[in-house]
Structure formats: C-alpha cells, structure tokens
Nucleic acid binder design. Structure first.
Length: 301
DNA sequence: CGGGCGGCCTGGAGGC
DNA sequence: TGCCTCCAGGCCGCCC
C-alpha cells in the first residue's frame, strides 16, 4: 500500500538492489524466512569455492573477527547449508560460518563480485566463478562468525537452543512437560529460543490466534488439549509460511517487486483496529514484555 | 533459576 | 524543510 515510502528515491531507475525490497525492510526473518533463504541459496552456493572475503564493517551484533573469518573461508568449498533455529550455517570442511540475520539482515547472491558494495553491505564473499555473496544489514543486529565445524552443536550461541518446532520432538507431550509450573506468558515462552527456536513476534502472534489462546495466558494453565492445539497451530503456521516462501524472500534473486505470499494470510499481526477475519471483532494490540502482541479478544481466551 | 528489562542499532514516521 | 523523538525487535547480559 505504501511501498513507495519504503523505497529510496533513486531505486526506481536502478537495477535491483537489496533496498529495493520494501517488504524485507518491514518484516523480520524468522524460521520460515531463514528456511526459504537456505533453500534458495543451496543451488547457487553448494560446491562454490571461496576465493576471498572482505569485511567492510565489523561492527555487527558482535564484532566480526576478520582474520578468523578469512582463514575459515578462503580456499574452502561450501559443502552444506544448514539451519538451526534462525541461524544459518555454511559448512566449509573443518570450519563453518555461522550467520544470523538479526532483524534487518539479508544475504544476496551477486552474479559479479565486482559489483560495488552498497551502503550496509558489511561482508562480501568472492567465489571462484566470479560470483559473490553479500551480507547486508542496515541495523547491524546480525552476526557472522567462523567456528570449527566440530563446534556446531557445542558453540555457546547454539548449545542452549531449544526444540525445532518442525521436528518430531515438538509435540503435545513435550509442550505439556515444558510448560508445567511456569508463570510466563505463553507468547514470551514461544518466543524464548531456549524453549522453542525460530518463532518470533509475527509467527507467535499468528500461531496463538490459530490456537485460540491469549498471548498473556500463563503457560502453567494450559490444558493438555490446549498444548495439542498449540503444537498444531505453530506447525501449520510455520509450514504454510515456508510453503509460501516466507513472508519476504520470494523475490530474493530478482528484486522485481513481486512479494511473498504469507503476509496476505496474516490473521492478527499488524492488523490492529481491523476486523478479525474469523469473527469481525476488532483486532487489538498490547505491549507485552516490550513487544507488540496482536490478538482477537473474542477468538483468543 | 525463572523471568523481566535495558542496551544494542538504524531508518521511517509523525509532531512541531 | 528540518530537527527531534519514538518505534520496530532478536538476542544477550544484568538484575531481582
């Protein structure tokens, strides 16, 4: 609706750039977006040999250790691209590159590594075929780090991560056990990566709407039946969003203005004051733990 | 130890 | 038109 307001004035006549995608700037990468990104990167990056790494701006969420990153990348081939929660990992033999997009991060594939760096391009990888990968992040909440591949499960940033919501381990029995004797609001619990990974503000709001649960409901008060509904809601929401290519990454390679699909399916997120699609009650927004929660006061109890 | 909250960071929006 | 303030939010660290 207000796309133009999110586009820099110069972008209309230039070739596609990261900042041409207004939706990307508005929404944040959660599990479906990272999984879509992972899938879109695989055909372009698997088997590529990294010839050079450039760090233009090391001041990310944690300072980029430039020498370590270069030593961990240069001369190595990308053997696998994996995801853990909202983290993406590039396997490079005995090393791995850990990437988190934070709120505004983006990975872009370029056909030529000679393309000038854009404002907010912080790291660039040059491949043997002349192509490139760029890490772009206006807010610099993301992180990029080279680690030993053997530490992928023991690294401090990964070891505390909770259950993958699209794995078999995430079932009603697990949710029931994990939510006992806690007073935390269910939305905070869902967004806590130590419990469940990959569920951020958008999908937590959407899943709780589907489950018919108020975001503020204490986890300890959930019945077994509600735990089961919650699992179904989280899984179906995430799976549908992955199927839609995420909310933001459908035009990852093109920047042609075509948008992802899932934002058209949002029931409550960013719909404050609009009618509930199910019962027409006005959707409300309330700040919870410093974050906006969107819900239908009639459908969610 | 569970859980709440401040800080990090930038750009868009809105007020004056 | 320009300056100022507010807001968005994942994650960590600090605190109670």
């Amino acid at each position: 609706m207000r796309r133009a307001a999110f586009c820099p004035p110069s972008s209309a006549t230039t070739i596609a750039t990261a900042s041409d995608d207004p939706l990307f700037a508005q929404t944040l990468p959660e599990l479906p977006e990272i999984e879509s990104l992972r899938r879109s990167l695989e055909p372009r990056l698997l088997g590529r040999r990294i010839d050079a790494v450039e760090v233009w701006e090391p001041r990310l969420r944690w300072p980029v250790e430039t020498d370590s990153l270069k030593r961990g990348c240069q001369g190595r081939r990308i053997e696998a691209i994996e995801r853990r929660g909202k983290y993406l990992t590039l396997r490079l033999g005995t090393r791995a590159v850990l990437i988190h997009l934070g709120m505004s991060g983006r990975l872009r594939c370029l056909d030529s590594a000679d393309r000038p760096k854009e404002k907010h391009d912080h790291i660039g990888w040059r491949f043997e075929n002349g192509q490139a990968l760029r890490f772009f992040d206006p807010r610099r909440f993301g992180c990029v780090e080279a680690i030993p591949a053997s530490e992928l499960s023991t690294h401090p940033r990964l070891t505390h991560l909770g259950v993958e919501p699209l794995s078999k381990a995430f079932d009603a029995a697990w949710v029931w056990r994990a939510t006992r004797n806690r007073s935390t609001a269910i939305k905070s619990w869902l967004m806590n990566a130590r419990q469940v990974v990959g569920v951020g503000n958008i999908y937590a709001s959407e899943a709780l709407f589907r489950a018919g649960l108020m975001p503020t409901k204490p986890t300890g008060s959930l019945t077994k039946r509600q735990c089961s509904c919650l699992v179904d809601a989280v899984v179906s929401t995430l799976a549908e969003a992955v199927g839609a290519g995420g909310t933001t990454l459908r035009d990852f390679h093109h920047g042609d203005g075509e948008r992802g699909q899932f934002q058209h399916k949002l029931s409550v997120y960013a719909r404050e004051g609009e009618p509930c699609r199910r019962c027409a009650t006005v959707v409300r927004r309330e700040v919870q733990n410093g974050r906006s929660s969107f819900f239908c006061p009639n459908c969610q109890r």
